[in-house]
Measured scan of single mutants.
Amino acid sequence: MEVRTIKVFTTVDNINLHTQVVDMSMTYGQQFGPTYLDGADVTKIKPHNSHEGKTFYVLPNDDTLRVEAFEYYHTTDPSFLGRYMSALNHTKKWKYPQVNGLTSIKWADNNCYLATALLTLQQIELKFNPPALQDAYYRARAGEAANFCALILAYCNKTVGELGDVRETMSYLFQHANLDSCKRVLNVVCKTCGQQQTTLKGVEAVMYMGTLSYEQFKKGVQIPCTCGKQATKYLVQQESPFVMMSAPPAQYELKHGTFTCASEYTGNYQCGHYKHITSKETLYCIDGALLTKSSEYKGPITDVFYKENSYTTTIK
């Protein structure tokens, strides 16, 4: 009895394709271990004539594949690729409408935090270190965002349907971005203890939790000093293409032309909904596939993004 075979390709990165001759009487799992086709788990399936010449994702289970996976995804987590594939199996079914010149995501599976993050990423200057993220990001900007969303979920250790947080998501993504040249110098002034300067680099240099107003941050924000008295913390120097200011959701007025974009969060910790506000020729609110415009805006804002380049204080 002759062994019926077909020729397929296996890959971990969709760049390096490895030619395989597979036995049609055995499952993919018996031949390769966990195997995925377009995100779908085909591990328990036997090869079919229609699979001839198709590319299958496999887990990096030998040295060659491990090197290829690390170079593309910059992670050695053995569960990463499987999590990416199972997320992709959902995100490829989502709709990605162009809204006001940006790629958004039609609401499904509690994905409003991903839509808000995706919209924000198209408006701030950011370059990702893992080629996987950078490639998928370019495709997302062009309207094909399924891979990018699935990668975000995998890097953030999230599953489809789980509630997510924009600030946490951005923080994970910033860790995989090139923020080497970003720098922030802060000064804390206390009447009792004097003053202390701190220099922050990388992710810490672009994120701040405690106030939404970048102007206020430049002037000074009140913080408790270690001595128990009130101290003032203010920005001395900022070198970065953008800054992200966050605070627990509270009524906040966004003035046209003073910011790049913002995240609105309605609801409580267990259950809520994100919308995205962007400042173009007027203010726009993007909620999944829905767009509304207004000249002014007041609502429960939790993150505001500002364009920056270089700032030095005039406070002496």
Rank of each mutant, 00 (worst) to 15 (best):
V21C: 12
V22S: 08
M24D: 07
S25R: 13
S25F: 08
M26V: 09
T27P: 13
T27A: 13
Y28V: 02
G33Y: 07
P34I: 11
T35I: 15
T43Y: 10
H48W: 14
S50G: 11
V58T: 09
L59M: 13
L59P: 01
P60N: 02
D63F: 10
R66E: 02
Y72M: 11
Y72I: 06
T75Y: 04
T75K: 09
D77S: 08
D77G: 01
T91Q: 01
T91P: 03
K92A: 10
K93L: 11
G101P: 05
G101V: 04
L102N: 01
S104C: 14
I105W: 00
W107D: 06
D109N: 10
N111Q: 00
A115R: 05
T116F: 00
L118M: 09
T120P: 06
I124N: 01
P130K: 02
A136G: 06
Y138V: 14
A146E: 10
A146G: 07
L153M: 10
T159V: 09
G164R: 00
R167Q: 11
T169P: 02
L173S: 09
F174C: 01
F174W: 08
N187L: 11
C190R: 05
C193Q: 00
K201H: 15
M209N: 14
L212Y: 07
S213P: 08
E215W: 06
Q216E: 13
G220L: 00
G220W: 01
V221M: 08
P224T: 13
C225Y: 00
C227Q: 05
T232N: 03
E239N: 07
P241Y: 01
F242V: 08
F242N: 01
V243S: 01
S246N: 02
S246C: 03
A250N: 11
H256L: 15
G257Y: 09
G257V: 06
Y265R: 00
T266V: 09
G272T: 01
G272V: 08
Y274A: 05
T278L: 08
S279Q: 08
S279D: 15
Y284P: 01
G288Y: 00
S295D: 15
Y297W: 07
T302E: 01
E308I: 01
E308T: 12
E308A: 05
N309K: 13
Y311C: 15
T312S: 11
T313C: 14
T314A: 13
